[in-house]
C-alpha cells in the first residue's frame, strides 16, 4: 500500500507548505452501524487541487467515509480534519466552503429545475450564474420542468449542479455519474476537470473504474471498511506486476531464455510454447525478450505486453476476502 500521507508536493508541480496542501486528513477512522464496522481504521489524505477517487465494492464503506467527511456522522474513533476543522463540530464554518452531492438526490420534487437552482443560490453565500450552470448541465430545455418530471439522469445532473454551485473550495461527490448516459458522463468529467483546474479539490466515489483512471490524480480502493491500496494511478498500478505473453516456437526453446531483471514468475504452458512472464520491470524485460528473439532469429507469435489494469487490482482486492 502506498501511504496517502507523504511529501508536501502539490498537484501541478508546485511545492507548498504541508498544512496548506492538505484539505482532508483522515486518521485511524472507525465507524460502525450497530455491530457492523462500516469504516474500520481508514487513513487518507486529500491534497489541495486534486481529484481523489474512492473506489470499492458495494458496502465497502465509501459513502460512510464521505458522510464522516461531510460532518453528517461522528467518528467512533480516529480523527477527520477538513480544511483544518472537525467537520462534525464545525459544519457551519465548513459549509460555505464545501459542495456536496449525496448518493441519493433529495431534491424537492414540486420545484422546477430553475427554481431548484435559485433556491440553492439563496441558501449559500457563494454566487453563480444560474443560466450558465443550466447550460453546463445541459438542462436549458428543461428549465421550467418540475423535478418530479425529470429522468433519473437529469435529476443527477441537477444534483451535481447544486454541489458545484459557486465553485466551492472542496467538492464531495458520491457516485456522481450513476445513471448517466456515456455522453453526459463525459461532460460531467470535463466539468470536474475544469473545477480542479480552477482550484477546487474534489473527493468522489465511483463504481466506474475508467472514470477513476481518466479523472483522478489519486485513487484509493476500499474493501470491508479499509483502504486496501492508495496512491497515484501509476503507484497503484505498480502494486501488481505487468505481464508479457508470447507464443514461442518449440525449436527456439533449445536456446535458454534471457535473464529477466524484474521477473516474478515465468511459466510455459503444457505444450511448452506459451511464455507468460510477470514482471516489475516491463520495459526492460520486454527489451531483453525482443533482443533474445532478434539475436536468435525467432519469431514471437501473439506477443502482448501490458501493465496491470485498475480493474485487475480492484478484482484482486475484492478476491482477498
Amino acid at each position: 500500500m502506498t501511504a496517502a500521507t507523504g511529501a508536501a508536493f502539490a498537484v501541478r508541480g508546485s511545492f507548498v507548505g504541508m498544512e496548506d496542501d492538505i484539505v482532508i486528513e483522515i486518521s485511524l477512522l472507525r465507524f460502525s452501524y450497530d455491530t457492523f464496522a462500516a469504516v474500520d481504521g481508514v487513513d487518507l489524505t486529500v491534497r489541495r487541487g486534486e481529484i481523489f477517487a474512492l473506489l470499492g465494492t458495494n458496502g465497502a464503506g465509501k459513502t460512510t467515509t464521505l458522510e464522516l467527511v461531510e460532518g453528517f456522522r461522528r467518528p467512533e474513533s480516529g480523527t477527520v480534519r477538513v480544511l483544518g476543522h472537525d467537520p462534525a463540530r464545525a459544519r457551519s464554518l465548513l459549509k460555505p466552503r464545501m459542495g456536496m452531492m449525496l448518493q441519493h438526490a433529495g431534491l424537492i420534487e414540486e420545484l422546477s429545475v430553475f427554481e431548484t437552482l435559485k433556491l440553492w443560490g439563496s441558501l449559500t453565500t457563494r454566487s453563480d450564474d444560474v443560466e450558465e450552470l443550466l447550460d453546463r448541465i445541459e438542462l436549458v430545455h428543461r428549465r421550467d420542468t418540475r423535478v418530479e418530471q425529470l429522468s433519473g439522469g437529469e435529476k443527477r445532473r441537477l444534483d451535481f449542479a447544486l454541489a458545484i454551485y459557486g465553485r466551492p473550495e472542496l467538492i464531495v461527490l458520491d457516485e456522481p455519474t450513476t445513471g448517466l448516459d456515456p455522453e453526459s458522463r463525459q461532460r460531467l468529467w470535463q466539468t470536474v476537470e475544469r473545477l480542479r483546474d480552477s482550484g477546487s479539490t474534489i473527493l468522489l466515489t465511483t463504481h466506474y473504474l475508467e472514470e477513476a483512471e481518466s479523472l483522478a490524480d489519486r485513487v484509493a480502493i476500499m474493501h470491508q471498511g479499509r483502504i486496501s491500496v492508495a496512491g497515484t494511478l501509476p503507484e497503484v498500478l505498480g502494486t501488481r506486476p505487468s505481464r508479457i505473453t508470447a507464443r514461442v516456437p518449440a525449436s527456439a526453446l533449445e536456446r535458454a531464455l534471457p535473464a529477466f531483471a524484474g521477473a516474478l514468475k515465468s511459466t510455459l504452458d503444457d505444450t511448452g510454447a506459451l511464455l507468460v512472464l510477470e514482471t516489475t520491470a516491463l520495459q526492460e524485460d520486454l527489451g531483453a525478450l525482443l533482443r533474445w528473439a532478434g539475436d536468435g532469429g525467432i519469431e514471437l507469435d501473439r506477443l502482448t505486453a501490458s501493465q496491470a489494469s485498475l480493474a485487475e487490482i480492484f478484482l484482486t482486492v475484492g478476491a482477498n476476502r
Binding site: M100, H104, L123
Partner: peptide, 14 residues
Amino acid sequence: QSLVLKRLRTSELT
C-alpha cells in the same frame, strides 16, 4: 423519506 431534509443540511442552512 425523500431525503430532502438531508439534502438541505448540505446547504448553508443551519
